[in-house]
Amino acid sequence: MDKFTTLTGVAAPLEIDNVDTDMIIPKQYLKTIKRTGLGAGLFSEMRYADDGSPNPDFVLNKPAYSKARILVAGDNFGCGSSREHAPWALLDFGIRCVISTDFADIFYNNCFKNGILPIKVSPEDLEKLMDDARRGANATLTVDLLAQEIKGPDGGTVRFEIDAFRKHCLIEGLDDIGLTMVEAGAIKSFESNAASARPWN
């Protein structure tokens, strides 16, 4: 997993609440054996017309946002299906940070497994960042995970909270498996007690 420390890039405004994972990456893209290449299907229903041509009104099709690294989105982002293709598609497009007031739990967890930083901010801060993102190519934000700060184009700063451990894993590019293996002893002893705790299992 790639490390995440700071990220500077164009932020695209996606002013929609309840963006679901079917919307992020529809089922027709899920049969791929590879995890790369999904960026082409990102937001496909909104992004392309019926004949496959790009919809010029969709934010990521606008020249100013075609290289967006950050997404500023409405409440409850990532709801619905547990498909991890959603963060894979974002990553493949080049987006490594999503900012919203709240995220659906499964999507939120999936992001951290793939080096994407999901940032929760207050509705007031989201409005401020959405304003920044609306400025097109000038909408450059800098996300500093170490300092837990988002710096806007005008020098304004938004602080954000994140679990210390998840932060540590992103910064170091660690995945859970290695950390879990450290607990092998505890797992083993739990396991031997589990049989007597739940004999019906």
Partner: peptide, 11 residues
């Protein structure tokens, strides 16, 4: 998610 499925399979 899929990464968590892998984690459960392994641990």
């Amino acid at each position: 998610g899929a990464s968590e499925v892998a984690h459960v399979l392994m641990t």
